[in-house]
Structures are given as structure tokens and as C-alpha cells.
Simulated scan of single mutants.
Amino acid sequence: MDLLRSMEAFVLTVKTGSFVASATSLNTSPQMIAKYVVFLEDYLGLKLLNRTTRSQRLTEFGKQYYERCVFILSEVKNTKALAQQFCQEPKGRLRISAPVSYGQFNLLPVISRFMKCYPKLNIDIQLSDRYVDLVKDDFDAVFRIGTLNDSGLIARKLNKLQLIFAASPSYLAKYGVPSVPNDLKNHQCLIYQYANPTKKDNFWPFTVNGELINIAITGAFQSNNTSILAAAAVEGLGITMLPESVLNESIKQSKLITVLQDFLPPAREVHLLYKSDKQQLPKLKMFIEFITNSM
């Protein structure tokens, strides 16, 4: 006999006060309701109801078992609702924040595939290298690069981001190829200007003999836009340090040449952050799973 069905019959019997009323709710007979209750009592080895010809009362154990049954049936209902959410086609708007170059070169191709799978969704991507507050700025999810602060948000780890060094063939022919990080003191470095500058903005990280060190760099050209820095490198204005994804196409076309490959810094952590919510909407669930399986 079905255990959950028996629990449902028992709960309804307690709520309605009779087998007849319970049978009406479950579209069955009072005799069947009685069988469900007897089945539970045999299954548990304890009596649930003290029955007389005129009334039925819960036993001491029956009272506790009734409360547990109510909770279990509620959870079963919730899991069914969860399954129904997953079966629904996601729709509506998703508002996402990501760093500029990561959004343009890493995220956009994946978002494009996601939207083809779920055409009823609207995606609003805001690209900014400033720190955004997911709650205050009304985002469904944000992408963060680097070490995370304790924010109380859920974090899903994505593929790491590797920074590389590159310059144009014309620049290297004119000024020479740096062989060690300290050679950069004789070179023009294309400097990324952070939204929130720090004292380390004019330092580049390198791995030397297994240790991470920062080398001071100088340069006449700086920008807060990675695409501009990549274009400046192609134009021969200096050496750039940017994510591999930003420079890949120019390297393939021989417009840029990588340098200092033996001294690359450790790859940077990338995470997708979102709020903890048990009633998460299908559109966000689908997005999270798609991103974590693709990046």
C-alpha cells in the first residue's frame, strides 16, 4: 500500500474528524480510508487512533506522528512545485553585471548560446569594472574576478582567467624582447587604469622561481578600457598585460607576440555570485546551471 497516500488519508481524517469526510476529499470510500490508517499502524507497530462507534481520538504517539506527517506532506508538495518550476520555460528579464573585458570576450559568446536555447528570456548585461552591489543595484547575478570578500552571497566557481604579456612585432623589433621581468624598466608598458586606483596600480605581477612578485612598470599610455589597451599594443605603443581571451585573436593574426611566458602570474579566480533563495525562479536557475557548465 502507498505510504504517502496512507499518510495523506491519516492527516485528512484527523483534520476532518471522520473517515467519511476524508474519503470524500480523496475520492474514495470510508472503508479504504480505514485500511490506510490500519496499514500505517501495522507499519509503525503503534496505534494512531483510539476508535469507538461514535468518535476517534489521537493516541499520544498519534499526535506526534500527525505533526510529522503534516511536515512531510508539505515538503513533498514543495518538491513537486520545484520540479514544475524546472519544467517551465524560463522567461522574463535577467539583469547581470560583469567586468568589461570579461563580459565582452568571455561572457558574450556563452550568453548568445543561452539566449538561443531560451528565446523568451531578456538579458540585460551591465559591463563595469567598478564594484557593484547585487542587492542595492538590483542585479540577479554578478561576475567577480579575483579574491572574494565575505558577502553572504552564493558563489559558483568558473574557469580561471589567465593574464599574459604581449607586444607588436614592430615594437619588439625596435625596442627588443624582454627576457626577464626586470627588463621592463627599459620598456613602455600600457597601463590599465582601475576604477578605484591603489598604490599597486603601476605594478605588474610575475611568478619568479615559484614566488609571486610585483615589478614596478612605467608607460606614457594608460586607459580604463582593455580593448583600447589591446589596440594600443597592436599599434606598437608598448607592452600590454591583459587577459588571454582579450589578446588571443590578435596573437593568432600575428599582430601581437607574447613575451615573458615563463613568468606568468597565477591565473585569477572567477566566480558567479547570486542571492541565496529557496524559491529561485527558473530563469535564474537555468542561467546559473548553463554558465557553470559552460565556463
Rank of each mutant, 00 (worst) to 15 (best):
K120L: 12
S97A: 15
I96E: 06
L94I: 14
Q126G: 02
V100P: 00
G103E: 06
I123R: 06
I125L: 15
N106C: 11
L108P: 02
I125S: 04
R130C: 07
V132H: 14
F105S: 01
F105A: 01
L94Y: 08
P99D: 04
R113V: 04
P99H: 10
Q104R: 14
Y102F: 13
S101F: 04
R113N: 03
R95Q: 13
L107R: 01
Y102H: 01
F114N: 00
V132W: 10
I125G: 02
K116Y: 03
I111W: 09
Q126W: 09
M115V: 11
I123N: 07
Y118Q: 07
I96P: 04
D133W: 02
V100D: 07
M115N: 12
G103Q: 10
R95C: 09
I123S: 05
D124K: 13
D124C: 09
R130L: 08
Y102E: 00
Y118S: 09
Q126S: 06
M115H: 13
V110Q: 09
Y118M: 06
V100S: 10
I125K: 03
Q126C: 10
F105C: 01
D133H: 06
Y102A: 01
V132M: 15
D124L: 11
I123T: 02
A98E: 06
K116T: 08
D129L: 08
L107N: 00
P109S: 02
L108T: 06
S101R: 02
P99N: 11
A98I: 03
G103N: 08
V110K: 11
N122I: 05
V100H: 04
G103Y: 03
L121Q: 01
I123C: 08
L127C: 11
S112M: 04
V132G: 08
Y131P: 00
S97K: 13
P109Q: 00
C117R: 13
K116A: 12
C117Q: 14
F105I: 00
Y102C: 01
R95Y: 05
Q104A: 08
R130V: 09
Q104P: 03
L127V: 07
R113G: 00
